[in-house]
Computed example of a mutant assay.
Amino acid sequence: MRGVPESHTGWTFLTSHARVLAAIAENPTTRIRDMAVRCQLTERAVQKIVADLERDGYLTHTRRGRSNTYRVEDGTVLRHPAECGLSVADLLALLVEHDTAHQDTPHAVQATARWQRPEAAPK
């Protein structure tokens, strides 16, 4: 896991829900405590977010002894009308692509093209 940047004030692009989902996608056996550190949230906040994501069908978990293994439901579509047709898998692919490319221009252009609404996509 990479180092966590300094805390920051003001708005951010990703919600806490998106950060937790990305942390789970990166490591399905991660602990609530580790997600909290990675996402710079309290453990209680992460527990609530995980419960929200499970309740709305974005992830499931399997209990194994004293730990959980999470499964992101990739086909679940995002909730906001502006993300019309985008699935969790699409969002996570964009985040992974950005992370691995470190803002490499060709990847950023590909991600932008994929993010376009279906009616705006070239035919």
Rank of each mutant, 00 (worst) to 15 (best):
V46K: 04
D34V: 08
C39A: 09
S87H: 07
T30N: 07
Y58F: 15
M35K: 04
L53Q: 02
V50N: 00
T69M: 14
T42Q: 12
K48W: 06
R63H: 09
R66Y: 10
R55K: 15
L41N: 00
T69P: 01
L86N: 11
E83K: 13
P81A: 09
D74M: 12
V88I: 12
E73I: 14
A93V: 02
M35A: 04
K48L: 10
L78W: 04
V77P: 05
Q47N: 10
T62D: 04
T69G: 02
V37K: 10
D74L: 12
D34P: 06
V72W: 05
M35D: 03
I32F: 01
D52Q: 15
A89P: 00
E43W: 02
H61W: 00
L92H: 03
V37H: 12
C84W: 11
V46C: 08
V50T: 04
L92M: 05
V46H: 00
R71F: 09
L59F: 07
D90N: 14
H61I: 03
V88E: 00
A51Q: 14
T30W: 03
D56K: 15
T62F: 11
L92S: 01
R71S: 12
H80G: 04
S67Y: 09
D52K: 15
R63P: 06
M35W: 02
R64A: 08
A93C: 08
Y58R: 11
L94D: 13
R55S: 12
R33I: 07
T76K: 14
V50F: 01
R44H: 11
I49L: 10
H61C: 11
T60C: 08
R79K: 14
A51G: 14
A82N: 11
Q40M: 09
E54K: 15
L41F: 02
S67M: 11
D74E: 14
L86M: 13
T60R: 13
L59H: 06
D52M: 12
R33V: 13
A51S: 13
D90I: 03
R79V: 09
G75K: 09
V88L: 06
V46L: 00
V37T: 14
D56C: 12
T76C: 10
E54T: 13
R55F: 13
R31W: 03
Q47T: 15
A36N: 04
T60H: 07
V88S: 04
T62K: 15
G57S: 09
L59T: 05
T42E: 12
G57L: 07
R55Y: 12
R31K: 13
R64N: 11
G85V: 08
R63T: 02
D74F: 08
L53V: 01
L41D: 01
A89R: 13
L78Y: 02
T42D: 11
C39T: 07
D90K: 08
G85M: 05
A89E: 01
G75M: 08
R63G: 02
R55L: 09
L86C: 09
K48G: 07
A82R: 14
R31Q: 13
T69D: 00
E54D: 07
A51R: 15
G65H: 03
T60A: 08
E73C: 05
R63Y: 04
N68A: 14
D90R: 08
L78Q: 10
E54R: 11
A89V: 07
V77G: 04
D52T: 11
H61Q: 06
V37F: 05
R63Q: 10
Q47A: 13
L94S: 12
